[in-house]
Structure formats: structure tokens, C-alpha cells
């Protein structure tokens, strides 16, 4: 099944205006509203054979030129039999950025979703164990957001000092 056939199948199933597509170099993207993302991904997995979720990531489009939505989440899907790659993309916004979890479809999404939550605060609805993965639990910010400074807000300096005579 080629990329065009898959997109045609999706159009038949979900309607012609359910999603938009874009192409850049060899990347083919399907851009979806967040309400429809789970059903389309489920369809892609079950009926189109996309058995490998190669990558799941997020970004903050706060300062991006001509961006309309703040948080983007993408899924890079691969069909391991035919080798077709497809990128599915969706957007979500403050104050409660929420995207449905794809953990029921691909178990590999587990940690990748937790990382996006850790870095951006995007909540994955339906994830069985959504908590911080890389940063300490006590950390209160989402460091990859564009309004968080690169050098942090002084968290890295707040530790007790052990000097030589007292250790």
C-alpha cells in the first residue's frame, strides 16, 4: 500500500476535510485536530499496517512564525512490511493541553509520552502512569517550554554545601 492509497483510504473513511496534508522533502504529514487523532491512528494501525511507532515528540510553537496553536505533538509511523513512513501531527493549546494517549495501540508510546509531559506539560489522556520521567518529581516548571530560560530559575544552585572539615 503506497502513501497515496493510504491517504485516499483515510479520506474515504473520515471524510475529505477531516485532515490536511503537507509534504516536505520525503516527509509526508497528516495534520489532524486533536479530537480525531486517536481514531485515525487506530485506523492506521489496524487497517493500514503501521505496526511501529518510530517516534513521538512534542514542541512549543510559542515564538514560531505564523503559528496558530501552541503545542504540537507528532507521531512518526512505520509499516515494517512495506517500509512506508507517515507523520501524523496534531496541535493543542493552553490552559489544559491534552492529547489522547496512544499507549493502548503501541506500548512503545509509554515513555515517549511521559517525556513530552515532563518537558511541555502536555497531558496524555488515558496514559496509565503519567508522571515526570527525566526531572525530579519536585520540579515545578516545564523546562522545554519557550518561556522557560535555558539556565533555569536557580534550581541547580539550591543544594546544601559540604565543606572539607565537616565531611
Amino acid at each position: 500500500m503506497t502513501r497515496e492509497e493510504i491517504v485516499n483510504k483515510l479520506r474515504e473513511r473520515f471524510g475529505a476535510d477531516a485532515f490536511s496534508t503537507s509534504e516536505f522533502r520525503d516527509n509526508y504529514r497528516i495534520i489532524l485536530p486533536v479530537e480525531r487523532v486517536y481514531s485515525v491512528l487506530e485506523y492506521l494501525k489496524i487497517s493500514c499496517g503501521f505496526d511501529l511507532l518510530a517516534e513521538l515528540g512534542g514542541a512549543d510553537y510559542l515564538q514560531y512564525p505564523n503559528a496558530r496553536d501552541r503545542y504540537g505533538v507528532w507521531y512518526v509511523l512505520v509499516n515494517t512490511t512495506t517500509g512506508v513512513r507517515l507523520i501524523v501531527k496534531t496541535f493543542t493549546n493552553d490552559p489544559e493541553p491534552t492529547v489522547p494517549s496512544v499507549y493502548p495501540l503501541w506500548k512503545g508510546a509509554d515513555w515517549m509520552e511521559r517525556e513530552v509531559y515532563d518537558m511541555y506539560g502536555v497531558v496524555f489522556d488515558g496514559h496509565p502512569d503519567l508522571r515526570r520521567i527525566l526531572l525530579p518529581d519536585e520540579f515545578t516548571s516545564f523546562p522545554m517550554r519557550k518561556d522557560y530560560p535555558m539556565r533555569g530559575r536557580g534550581e541547580r544552585h539550591n543544594f546544601p554545601i559540604i565543606s572539607r572539615p565537616e565531611s
Binding site: 515564538q63 512518526v76 512503545g108 515513555w111 515517549m112 517525556e115
Partner: peptide, 23 residues
């Protein structure tokens, strides 16, 4: 893999790594 978002300048807007060790 790298998911690279560019905003036209010489610095990437977002560099996301697909890290095999993590997965």
C-alpha cells in the same frame, strides 16, 4: 532520528532526538 523544526534562521527552533537507548 532527529525531528528538526526550523524557523528560517541559523539556529534550530526545536531539535528533538529519537533516542534508541531511551526506547
Amino acid at each position: 532520528g532527529y525531528y528538526l523544526i526550523a524557523d528560517g534562521s541559523g539556529v534550530a527552533y526545536r531539535t528533538r532526538t529519537r533516542p534508541p537507548s531511551f526506547i
